[in-house]
Amino acid sequence: MLTCREVIEFLMNYAEGNVTPEERVRFEEHLAVCPACVNYLNTYRTTVRLGQQAFKPLPTDADESSVPEDLVRAILDARRK
């Protein structure tokens, strides 16, 4: 059986489905008897999801789609040089 260290070390491969069917079976044998690794896997997945969402504007956020006017001018002026 895999150890916790091995499961955690290769967790990204498992979480993203980049394992062979045989490796998947070995991971799942361990996860079936190790609540700590299941907790680690779940909180790892939540971490990835929170990271992905943290920089996306919420629907209620103010519109930040304008570019500072002086930067627009600087870029366009530099193009003409």
């Binding site: 150890t3 916790c4 909180t43 939540t46 929170l50 969402q53 943290a54 919420l58």
Partner: peptide, 23 residues
């Protein structure tokens, strides 16, 4: 990890789901 490969500090669950946390 300790010598036999177990986590030195076993992970515990977070109370809320990813969806509720992300908002």
């Amino acid at each position: 990890f300790v010598a036999d490969g177990h986590a030195a500090e076993p992970a515990t669950a977070w109370d809320q789901t990813a969806d509720s946390l992300a908002e």
